[in-house]
């Protein structure tokens, strides 16, 4: 089965799980209705709860379901579907109050029914999860702290939701509904066990050692790891991995980075720019140090996009996965033509500039550097990756090529639009989101 068919299958299965509580209610024997708004509110509540339950699976990084989409897209979808859940979650109490405003009288601290308090607490937890995710940087919450808070609040929200649903009891006291909710909750529990226990145990049994740490231009570091008494991992050029340093895989301090090394090499390399809490300490890594790698992930790879040639577009450290593809092509003696657009602030900061020049000799590679702040007498492209830049360098020769774009989200959106306006089919433009959270 191809990636498209598999993608449709997993989308259909996911939709089925979310809608399953309503299918059961529509198909099975249920108690008499309580009024349109009241029943609509109950249905909205069930949908919100089902979406919340599926969040655990969406972020569990199950390799098979994630493969057709790429994990970056699954995480992006996770954020979108959370907004859909928020809509149903808000509709649930608002519809109830619209049906009977006197219900507000029941909301009194310490004297409300326990299931009502559980529902309100679940709602508060969910809102807290949303706000701390959407405004993580604005609230100045570190990535590692946020991940722990996110996991804790999510589990708490789900537990409180179950207490609320069971406490209310309406529409879940049939055998079929009880079975369904038991299955959904078991799924959540198994997912949590997989993520927090089985996967860390597996990573612990397959450690890596740091071979070298090399400073690159643009405040970036290339970290090379070697499998420690195991075969390592095989990956497609352009994929990425979750890396744990300085702690065990149980610590929830892993971070996603693109692999920048050749897929043909046994050692694996990450090129990491000093940007945040974790990355600013990367220069302190010592050779011989233990590391754990959860890989490979991502659908951004030439190996998944057979074509007569490629156009790569990189913004800043977005060059890392493209470098992996170029190095892999060089190792494979792949002479298909590649045109690389590489945008950076200054020439001095440009990561991999010398390595790229060296690769020109081993590949059919053309490079267009685009500098925001060019040096004096710079003859090349300047400013941003605009439509005119692409128009000057793309020709009929590039028809049928696949376009791979990696960099900041704003750059990706602008490049996609520019290429599309120049007549590049959207199906030929492939992107990788770097900002997962």
């Amino acid at each position: 089965m191809g990636f498209v068919a598999r993608g449709i299958f997993w989308c259909a299965l996911y939709t089925g799980v979310i809608l399953s509580p309503l299918f059961f209610l529509l198909a099975g024997p249920v108690p008499a209705g309580s009024g349109f708004l009241w029943d609509l509110s109950a249905a909205c509540g069930f949908i919100a709860a089902a979406i919340m339950a599926t969040m655990f699976a969406l972020t569990a990084r199950f390799k098979r379901p994630v493969a057709p989409f790429g994990i970056d897209l699954v995480y992006y979808f996770h954020r979108l579907i959370a907004l859909v859940a928020l809509f149903f979650l808000l509709a649930h109490p608002l519809l109830l109050l619209a049906a009977d405003p006197r219900l507000l009288l029941f909301v009194r601290p310490r004297s409300s029914p326990y299931h009502l308090e559980a529902g309100i607490a679940a709602f508060a937890c969910f809102i807290a999860v949303m706000l701390t995710s959407l405004w993580r940087r604005r609230l100045n919450i570190g990535y590692d702290t946020w991940r722990k808070l996110h996991a804790l609040l999510s589990v708490l929200a789900m537990v409180l939701t179950v207490v609320h649903i069971q406490g209310v009891g309406h529409y879940v006291d049939t055998a079929a509904s009880s079975l369904l909710w038991s299955a959904i909750l078991s799924g959540c529990l198994v997912t949590i066990l997989y993520v927090r226990l089985f996967k860390p145990l597996r990573l612990l049994a397959r450690p890596y050692r740091v071979v070298s740490i090399v400073g690159e231009a643009g405040r970036a570091w290339t970290l090379t790891l070697r499998p420690d008494r195991h075969a390592g991992v095989s990956f497609l050029p352009g994929q990425f991995a979750w890396l744990t340093l300085w702690s065990s895989p149980f610590s929830m301090t892993e971070h996603p980075f693109s692999l920048s090394s050749s897929a043909e090499s046994a050692d694996i390399g990450f090129t990491i720019k000093e940007l945040g809490d974790f990355t600013s300490g990367i220069s302190r890594v010592q050779p011989g140090q233990l590391a754990f790698v959860d890989a490979p992930y991502g659908a951004f790879s030439i190996d998944r996009l057979p074509a007569p040639g490629y156009v790569f577009v990189a913004g800043g450290i977005g060059i890392a996965p493209l470098m992996s593809m170029l190095r892999t092509m060089a190792d494979r003696r792949d002479r298909r033509p590649v045109l690389l657009f590489y945008a950076y602030n200054t020439r001095e900061e440009m990561t991999f500039r010398e390595q790229l020049e060296e690769l020109r000799g081993r590949l059919d590679l053309d490079i267009v550097y685009v500098l925001k702040r060019p040096p004096n007498r710079w003859q090349g492209e300047t400013g941003l990756l605009r439509e005119e830049v692409f128009r000057r360098h793309l020709s009929e020769m590039h028809d049928g090529f696949e376009f791979l774009v990696c960099g900041p989200v704003a750059m990706i959106a602008a490049v996609e639009q520019a290429l599309h306006r120049l007549g590049v089919p959207m199906r030929s433009i492939h992107t990788e989101l770097f900002e997962l959270v």
């Binding site: 309503l22 529509l26 309580s34 029943d39 249905a43 897209l73 979808f77 579907i81 859909v84």
Partner: peptide
Amino acid sequence: MRLLLAKIVAAAIGAVALILAMLFAAVQNG
């Protein structure tokens, strides 16, 4: 393209869920 597709899928799931919820409420209340 991928981001747009993700948005379409999320919106479609929400729309179908809302329609089913309204259908359920309508069926329950004649």
